[in-house]
Amino acid sequence: MSKIRVSTTVNGDAAEFLCEPTSSLLDVLRDTMGLTGSKEGCGSGDCGACTVVLDGEMVCSCLVLAPEAEGRTIATIEGVAEGSVLHPVQQKFLEHAALQCGFCTPGFIVAAKALLDRNPDPTESEVRYWLAGNLCRCTGYDKIVRAVMAAAAELRQERTPA
């Protein structure tokens, strides 16, 4: 079985990799590229722990074949902070204690950022439905939803011209 060469952009950097035809994007990110922030909780698209943004849309990277990424742009949890400066979603997750074990956290943060990138003023219900593809078993979602709402408020303030 011959491997496929794939050229992509990951977190803003050009990246090339070799993969099996049916490798998942998640496997390549984690095992080939060493980007282990995206997690595998189920391998069937039911938990959202592997959420990445592919060409601007969030997807479960366990349900993307790695060769599909050819020429596409991928954003993972590792690219959410700007250097050492946390994104407001990350900062609010810390301040609101929106994580316990932290395993689902990267997926939630990528998903929440994707929401706020397109909807800076979501209702609680919109946040809950948007994040319904991300399972968390520790928090009961309460503090996660609060953190996302708080991050939205902060982002709105940042975006408002002085």
């Binding site: 993972t76 990350q90 932290g102």
Partner: peptide, 14 residues
């Protein structure tokens, strides 16, 4: 916390 919101924390298969 920071390790966990940035994806740096190492879990079992990491």
């Amino acid at each position: 916390g920071v390790d966990k919101v940035t994806g740096k924390a190492l879990y079992s298969t990491d």
